[in-house]
């Protein structure tokens, strides 16, 4: 019996310190939660995750220095972005990962690195800073990733959903909903709305 050597304290909501999955799990899926700073991404992930959200980083080395140029190793500049994620075990063979990540343009390399193949995305918006999500919406539309938009309610409630839709210039086919990311049922409803939206797109495209 070997001990684990993780430096992390027992951070998870359930399970052993590192919460390995059942051995039968072979298929992992992913959904991204994107939005501006402080909009509630981590909160939404935490509300539905079976583990306490974990944080890690991805980085992108700027082009221009050859990877085999040893002299260049210290000269390379990198953009680093922290993201967090949680997990929902779906059944004996599959697991869903939820990623919370900033949606601004300079962080978008994360999509190519981490979220390629994602089922879809939740775009969280705060009506006090609507513009923070413009880039994410444009980009998701352009790459054909299914998404829903959720207005995370911080109690301001000055705008109706149709006003928010108009302000975002949102395609009428994209679902828009209001949520409280701190509330498990509310966060769960947003995810269900996303998956139902993806299903309707899939069935519409079916051969």
């Amino acid at each position: 019996m070997h001990s684990t050597t993780s430096e992390s304290p027992a951070t998870e909501q359930t399970g052993s310190p590192t919460s390995p999955l059942p051995d039968s799990v072979a298929q992992a899926l992913k959904i991204a939660v994107v939005g501006g700073f402080g909009v509630g991404k981590t909160t939404m992930v935490r509300s539905v995750s079976e583990i306490r959200p974990l944080t890690t980083e991805e980085n992108m080395t700027q082009a221009g220095v050859g990877v085999d140029d040893l002299q260049g190793v210290e000269a390379k500049t990198t953009t680093t972005v922290a993201f967090d994620f949680g997990r929902i075990t779906l059944d004996a063979t599959s697991v869903l990962y939820l990623f919370g990540a900033p949606g601004q343009e300079r962080f978008w390399f994360l999509w190519d690195r981490l979220f390629t193949g994602a089922l879809g995305a939740v775009v969280l918006v705060d009506t006090r800073r609507l513009a923070d999500c413009f880039y994410a919406i444009d980009r998701l539309e352009a790459q054909g990733t299914p998404f829903v938009v959720a207005h995370n309610d911080f109690g301001e409630a000055e705008y109706s959903l149709s006003e928010v839709r108009a302000a975002l210039d949102l395609d009428p086919a994209v679902p828009l909903t209001r949520c409280d990311a701190r509330d498990r049922d509310s966060a769960k409803r947003v995810l269900i709305e996303l998956v139902e939206h993806i299903r309707s797109l899939v069935l519409a495209q079916a051969p």
Binding site: S6, E7, P20, P22, L54, T56, E57, E58, T80
Partner: peptide
């Protein structure tokens, strides 16, 4: 037991790359 690449990165405290 099975663990995702990002979970391994988080537990090791190292970037995914």
């Amino acid at each position: 037991g099975p663990l995702s690449v990002v979970e391994i990165a988080a537990h090791l405290g190292l970037p995914v790359t």
